[in-house]
Structure formats: structure tokens, C-alpha cells
């Protein structure tokens, strides 16, 4: 069953509920992600499911956007970092939230059954609407819980240990 929005709000009631800020694993996975982003000039960058902005605040790009379904998480994110344009919204309305297209989209820890159920085909469709052609999409997920594959060229993939799991980082080019 999809996790209820009320539960997500409750979870985000405290700052840094997942304990990212003082965890070596999370420091490392952020470092790996930032290292793996292809070195290019990015105009518009979007972090889908940005939570309280742990990764978002360090992303490259002229304009960085972060979106999360939890309003509480976005409030913390806005307080933590003023350079990112944060907004609240669901991944299922992602094409309606923006009137621009992005040349880099990051999606971390979102495409799990408790958030998206059986709807991956629709998610590919919606993300495609907001990703520029030749744009880059980076997906980072716990390999054991992840079963998506985007309809783009998979130009790179990295596996590394994360907490007691394996992280799967995929880089796609549209």
C-alpha cells in the first residue's frame, strides 16, 4: 500500500528524520553522486523527492529546483538553503508543476513500492515531459528495492555499499 501523506508529514516533523547529516554512509553517497554527474553546464536542474534538501543544496546548475510531496520537509529545506527553489508536489503531477524543461534531473530514493506502487510506466511518461532531449537523468536507489528502468540510454552505472544495502546509481541520457 502507498504510504499516506499524513504519515510522511509526521515523519518529517523533526529535522533530518533519516539521520543523513551525521552519517558517513550518506556523506559518501552524496559525494559519489556529485562526482558522477557528467561535467557539463546545466541551466535548470531538478531534484525529485528532495526531502529536506540534503543533496539538493549541493547540486550544480544555474537554477536548482527541489520538489517533495511533504510540505513539512519543504519548509525545513527552505530554511536550510535559500539558493534552491523549493516547491511541494507529487511525482504524479510533476509535469504540471513546472513550465520549463530540465537538462539534469536527479531522483533519489523515490521509486520504491511504498511511494509509487505499480505505476512506473506513468512515471517514465511524466518525467519524459520535463526532461530536455539530450538531458541527463540520474537515479539512485537501494538495489534490493528498485525495479525501474528508464527508456533512455544507460550511459553509466555504479554500485556501492550503503548502510546494510547496495546502492544502484544509474545515469541515463535522453
Amino acid at each position: 500500500m502507498l504510504q499516506k501523506i499524513e504519515d510522511l508529514e509526521k515523519w518529517n516533523d523533526i529535522e533530518d528524520p533519516w539521520g543523513y547529516n551525521d552519517n558517513v554512509h550518506d556523506a559518501l553517497r552524496k559525494r559519489i553522486l556529485l562526482d558522477e554527474i557528467p561535467k557539463m553546464q546545466y541551466k535548470n536542474v531538478l531534484d525529485i523527492g528532495c526531502g529536506q534538501g540534503f543533496v539538493t543544496k549541493d547540486l550544480p546548475g544555474e537554477k536548482v529546483y527541489g520538489v517533495d510531496i511533504s510540505e513539512t520537509a519543504i519548509k525545513y529545506a527552505q530554511n536550510n538553503n535559500k539558493n534552491v527553489i523549493y516547491s511541494t508536489g507529487s511525482i504524479f503531477e510533476i509535469d504540471k508543476l513546472f513550465d520549463i524543461k530540465f537538462d539534469l534531473i536527479i531522483i533519489t530514493g523515490v521509486l520504491y513500492p511504498q511511494y509509487i506502487g505499480n505505476s512506473s510506466s506513468l512515471i517514465y511518461l511524466l518525467i519524459d515531459k520535463i526532461l530536455k532531449s539530450n538531458g541527463i537523468l540520474i537515479s539512485v536507489h537501494i538495489n534490493e528495492w528498485y525495479s525501474c528502468q528508464f527508456p533512455y540510454l544507460k550511459i553509466n552505472q555504479v554500485f556501492y555499499d550503503y548502510r546494510e544495502f547496495t546502492h544502484n546509481l544509474e545515469i541515463y541520457s535522453k
Binding site: 500500500m1 502507498l2 506502487g117 505499480n118 505505476s119 510506466s121 506513468l122
Partner: peptide
């Protein structure tokens, strides 16, 4: 049509797409 399908009156988004 929904990501979850609790009863027979619901079709999942992926199956609907298919």
C-alpha cells in the same frame, strides 16, 4: 485506476498502461 489495487474494481496504473 491507481498505483495500489485493493479490490477487483481497481486496475493498477501499469496494467492500465499495458
Amino acid at each position: 485506476i491507481h498505483p495500489d489495487t485493493p479490490t477487483m474494481w481497481w486496475v493498477s496504473v501499469n496494467e492500465f498502461y499495458r
